[in-house]
Design a protein around this nucleic acid. Structure first.
Lengths: 245, 245
DNA sequence: CGCATAGTTGAGACTATTCAAAAACCGTGG
DNA sequence: CCACGGTTTTTGAATAGTCTCAACTATGCG
């Protein structure tokens, strides 16, 4: 409902980077929000398996999609930044195959599936932009497969740091070479398919090589080109170009 | 155009498993195909970065999405079975961030993006089913992240074998406990984030434990429950339930 | 029949893990 | 303002899982 909530503004900014969004579409998008809610860090936002009738837009804070294994290990499949639709795919899947959790305190907006369905019936272009945003998630997840499958530990971490920098930038949350990332080394380990101990050692290495620092919940990038080289980071997969979709 | 091409039938079967598809929608879906084509094994079907104006439906044979790293290593992000839309996401991404290659000789159908756009404008329910099918790819890729990130080598391979068994079944290409999988151990290695040598050893182990055999391009599952246990395979993520979407 | 590709096996090396413990940090309450 | 308990980070040593390198065998195709 709120006219220009900064969180909604971030979600719109994310769309605007990829295509022209008409004022009418922005109005429909904003009007689709039924309510906003605050959830504490480490709480679940959506639990795997429950039938859903609304989708969740992340307005503030960091969240993630994750799955647990029988032995208690956790794999984070995607880290979400403000402006991300964390379970838009739940609209058509009807039930999620993974959990969505709050990495920090978060503020979310709830969008009824009826409203989304209405958009697919009457606003096909806006519907395509929403579809696109789920495709972007998929692209990010594919890049994670590459990272975990074929890159070494230092490279995986460097890649994650590069990706989040650009994604935070789109949401207007990164300054020149730095951004807030108030998560733990264990969260990074769960994202990169590593152990916390090894993440710690690799972070030290990246710091020692003057590439970046991760401390006190903040990332500072000292040598972007160097970090990109270590990560073999190519931002093509983020599709940061405005085109008719 | 061909009325009931078995390949198109497989694609429709994949949709029908998840929701009711009306005869009118089947007609529109079939009519969206502009032409079919044959491509030899190991050829590229879609190259990363090129601007696309049509999407590709896999009618026969096996294909994959993959990326190469600078050192020549390859990571397969998804294996495609007949009936899969291998680059439906290209409709809105406009350019792929990865390659699509033929693992075997394949037969494909090309669908112009104009036709897809038309579907989003005039057939919202069918459009949602297409959207759904890209969400299913994303779910499969998320499960791969979990596999590569947190499962050991034997478990990853077992998981892939279980997944492909169910997906081939949906396309009507699996018999009781067996299916054709004419790919190499190197392909499996590139899918699971392993080396061919290690895949070979793990396949021997799975065979030795009486769980499954992969030989001569065919998978034979001797002990489904045992294989599921090793893989920690839970098919929820394949969303094999028919629901209004 | 011969060559090319794919699969198999062994030995040794290396990356990342496990286990363990200490140090630093943080919010809370006295 | 400091003490306290819990969490997170850091460090070390030993281990395990997977990789690398290398060679040999089997298979399929022309």
């Amino acid at each position: 409902m709120p006219g220009d909530d900064p969180g909604i503004e971030r979600a719109l900014a994310k769309l605007r980077v990829r295509d022209v969004v008409t004022p009418e579409e922005e109005r429909v998008f904003t009007a689709s929000i039924a309510e906003t809610r605050v959830i504490a860090a480490h709480r679940q936002i959506v639990r795997s398996g429950t039938t859903l009738s609304e989708s969740t837009l992340l307005l503030d804070g960091l969240a993630c999609r994750y799955k647990d294994l029988a032995n208690g290990e956790r794999q984070i499949q995607e880290v979400h930044v403000p402006g991300d639709y964390v379970d838009l795919h739940g609209f058509l899947l009807k039930t999620l195959d993974h959990n969505v959790g709050a990495l920090t305190d978060v503020r979310i907006a709830l969008v009824p599936h009826d409203a989304l369905r209405e958009i697919t019936e009457n606003h096909p272009h806006l519907a395509r932009l929403l579809w696109f945003s789920t495709l972007l998630d998929a692209a990010i997840q594919r890049e994670r497969i590459l990272s975990i499958g074929r890159r070494n530990a230092a490279s995986r971490i460097a890649h994650l740091i590069c990706e989040l920098y650009l994604r935070m930038q789109v949401s207007g949350l990164a300054e020149e070479g730095r951004y807030a990332l108030p998560i733990t080394q264990t969260d990074i380990a769960d994202t990169c398919g590593l152990t916390p101990v090894h993440v710690n050692r690799m972070l030290r290495r990246l710091r020692g090589e003057g590439l970046m620092t991760f401390r006190g919940g903040e990332v500072v990038i000292h040598d972007w080109d160097g970090l990109v080289r270590v990560a073999e980071f190519d931002p093509t997969y983020l599709h940061l170009d405005r085109r008719p979709r």
